[in-house]
């Protein structure tokens, strides 16, 4: 048994958790989420570089919430989403134990969000090299080129809403796209509506997205949608100095303001 499996078995045995959300092996060396409710099942649990999925998304599911005592295996992005979700009052009804594995391969167990916050702040991640490169490329394009790029990307969108389903911050029980009085966004997949959907998604996540990149990774047609929010977060940090998934108490740049906020474009 790995140290992780041992630790989780221990948590089951001493009654700290009654449900564990983690990763298990799948075909093609992929890691998929697994939900175990007994110490005997811990041998499924793995933690490899393939364990990318943001498991905090499951904390919004009613059937998971019923478990009451939840253990969750969290990579750094998941830890950030837990912090952000706490600041948005979404985890207050869940008794949770957060398990992570640090760079030294030690299994760490956090029994409260203050400790998670502290860990996140000490290990705050940067963007991946690949994302940095892509953002740089996009920013070095002319405006018209960027428009062309995104137009082509969005044209491919089939409005499957996988980007929404996989996002821990998209927890609204009914999304704006499902509002029909009025109908803000057309239900069918067509290009203007696709652009609107992605614009709206980016605006709703700007300053809240914790840059796990899952939306881009999951997109079946390969649109790098995560770059939109990634760029927004960079801009927000530059303009207002706030970071997402950084503090359990606050951190949303768009529900606060400073009288001295600077802009050059308002005449």
């Amino acid at each position: 048994m790995t140290p992780l499996q041992n630790k989780v078995a221990e948590l089951f045995e001493n009654g700290t958790i009654s449900l564990m959300i983690g990763y298990k092996n799948a075909i093609n060396k992929l890691a998929v989420p697994c939900f175990i409710d007994h110490a005997t099942q811990v041998e499924q649990l793995i933690y490899t570089p393939e364990c990318k999925g943001n498991l905090s998304v499951y904390l919004h599911k009613a059937e998971i919430k019923q478990a009451k005592k939840i253990g969750i295996l969290a990579n750094i992005a998941t830890l950030r989403s837990l912090v952000q979700l706490t600041s948005e009052n979404q985890l207050s009804d869940i008794e949770k134990t957060v398990i992570t594995i640090n760079a030294q391969n030690e299994v760490l167990v956090f029994d409260n969000m203050e400790k998670v916050e502290e860990y996140v702040q000490a290990n705050f991640p940067e963007y991946t090299e690949e994302d940095k490169k892509l953002l740089e490329q996009l920013n070095s394009m002319t405006r018209a080129e960027r428009w062309q790029y995104w137009s082509e990307q969005f044209a491919a969108c089939v409005k499957c809403y996988a980007c929404r389903a996989v996002c821990p911050m998209c927890y609204c029980s009914s999304c704006t796209v499902e509002c029909n009085q009025p109908q803000w966004i057309k239900v069918s997949s067509e290009t203007t509506g696709n652009l609107e959907w992605h614009t709206m998604r980016a605006m709703h996540l700007a300053g809240r997205c914790i840059n796990c990149g899952e939306c881009g990774r999951i997109c079946p047609v390969g649109i790098p949608v995560h770059l939109l929010t990634a760029q927004m977060n960079l801009d927000i940090e530059k303009e207002f100095g706030s970071k997402t998934g950084f503090s359990c108490n606050s951190g949303y740049a768009l529900n606060t303001f400073k009288p001295e906020d600077k802009e050059q474009f308002i005449k």
Partner: peptide
């Protein structure tokens, strides 16, 4: 059991 579509993120309170 929905009561409202509000998810209680409370982000509006501050504005």
């Amino acid at each position: 059991p929905n009561f409202t579509s509000c998810t209680g993120c409370m982000l509006c309170m501050e504005v």
